[in-house]
Design a binder for these strands. Structure first.
Length: 88
DNA sequence: CGTATGACGTGCA
DNA sequence: GTGCACGCCATAC
């Protein structure tokens, strides 16, 4: 069911280890819909959850993408965790 | 139920 | 290297 995709996305995103980052496409693949990276960002956006490290999810271009709290906060958090500049 | 949107990704000029 | 347009999927209203 498509709904599982959402739950899966949350599981995957929540499974992201500190200091690591996954691209929306990567998450979509792990979630089971390699072509639903579009929905991944959509889900995180429409369903922002404080228990989900969605800030560890970035674009495939190493770009921070967006963030409900502001892209700046996203980058800031990543740097705080150890991600120097999305360049691993 | 049906329509429109979006925190994306890839190709081409 | 940069900018524009299309496609693809699920969610929310």
């Amino acid at each position: 069911m498509r709904k599982d995709f959402k739950l899966k996305v949350f599981e995957v995103v929540k499974a992201i280890p500190k200091g690591e980052t996954l691209s929306y496409k990567r998450v979509a693949e792990l979630a089971g819909r390699p072509k639903a990276y579009r929905a991944v960002g959509n889900i995180l956006s429409r369903n922002y959850d404080p228990s989900i490290p969605c800030h560890r999810v970035i674009r495939s271009d190493e770009a921070p993408g967006g963030y409900n709290r502001g892209s700046v906060a996203k980058i800031r958090k990543l740097r705080e965790e150890g991600v120097n500049q999305f360049r691993g």
